[in-house]
């Protein structure tokens, strides 16, 4: 399958990263309009490639690690574009663009699995389960980024060593709010994905059941703790960042088990 759209999309995110760093160095309040256009361009190209891939596969393009990484990048871009203005997190593009660039670069470095149109009937519950779960992972990725940014900001405040970029990132209160909202959004989507998984019978596969439930319970506790305001924003940030690392490990583990 032709990779042109995917390569062009990856380059768009690289450009977005470069423009965001430039904005940061110039101490701009947020990314320039060109940064947003480049990110939007990258997202459109991602969507185009995923659509073509889906048409060839005859199902949601989530059949390999290659597809999962691209779909995860698409979810992160979608959430960034959707939440950026609302939560005043425009400068998170500084981290979003390199994250998507990294995800897609890893994908491009992998051999792309050959396209074999599925002969099995498409199970809508399975499609829903996979797609919604990956979008949830995207939300958790952004929550992790917001958390990491909050930790960096907090460390500067505590140590009273304020670098110039301290003034360019969102305030701690906004980062904590974004972290919380993204965890809630991700948790709601993950729950939906899990329910869809139960309907299509994935719950019978013991390892996947264990992983899915483990991740769900992890974010359930995090959501409850955030809702009850029992943990401080910086602990929530640590947990959101750590939980995302656990998620990445599970994606890899699921792929390994799938192959074996």
């Amino acid at each position: 399958m032709d990779r042109t759209a995917l390569v062009a999309s990856t380059l768009c995110f690289l450009a977005g990263f470069a423009l965001s760093v430039q904005a940061l160095r110039a101490r701009a309040q947020g990314p320039s309009a060109s940064t947003l256009w480049v990110t939007l361009g990258g997202f459109v190209l991602q969507t185009l490639w995923l659509y073509q891939r889906g048409q060839l596969l005859g199902r949601c393009p989530l059949t390999s690690l290659f597809d999962v990484l691209v779909f995860l990048g698409w979810s992160v871009a979608l959430l960034y574009l959707g939440t950026g203005a609302t939560y005043r997190l425009s400068l998170l593009g500084v981290f979003t663009s390199p994250l998507v660039f990294l995800l897609q670069s890893i994908a491009l470095a992998l051999p792309m699995p050959s396209v074999a149109k599925s002969v099995l009937p498409v199970n809508p519950w399975l499609e829903l389960h996979a797609a919604v779960s990956v979008v949830a992972y995207g939300a958790f990725a952004l929550a992790g980024i917001a958390g990491a940014t909050l930790l960096v900001q907090e460390r500067q405040l505590k140590t009273r060593k304020l670098h110039s970029f301290f003034y360019r990132f969102p305030p701690i209160h906004d980062l904590a709010a974004a972290n919380r909202r993204l965890v809630y959004i991700g948790f709601a989507l993950l729950t939906l994905g899990l329910v869809a998984g139960i309907f299509q019978g994935i719950a019978h596969v013991s390892f996947l059941r264990f992983v899915s439930l483990g991740v769900w319970v992890l974010y359930l506790f995090l959501s409850i703790a955030l809702g009850w305001k029992r943990i401080s924003p910086n602990r929530a940030a640590w947990l959101a960042s750590g939980a995302f690392l656990v998620l990445l490990t599970t994606v890899w583990a699921v792929q390994l088990v799938g192959k074996s």
């Binding site: 003034y167 701690i172 209160h173």
Partner: peptide
């Protein structure tokens, strides 16, 4: 004041 805004928005 600026620090307060970096904490609370």
């Amino acid at each position: 004041v600026e620090l307060a805004e970096r904490i609370f928005g």
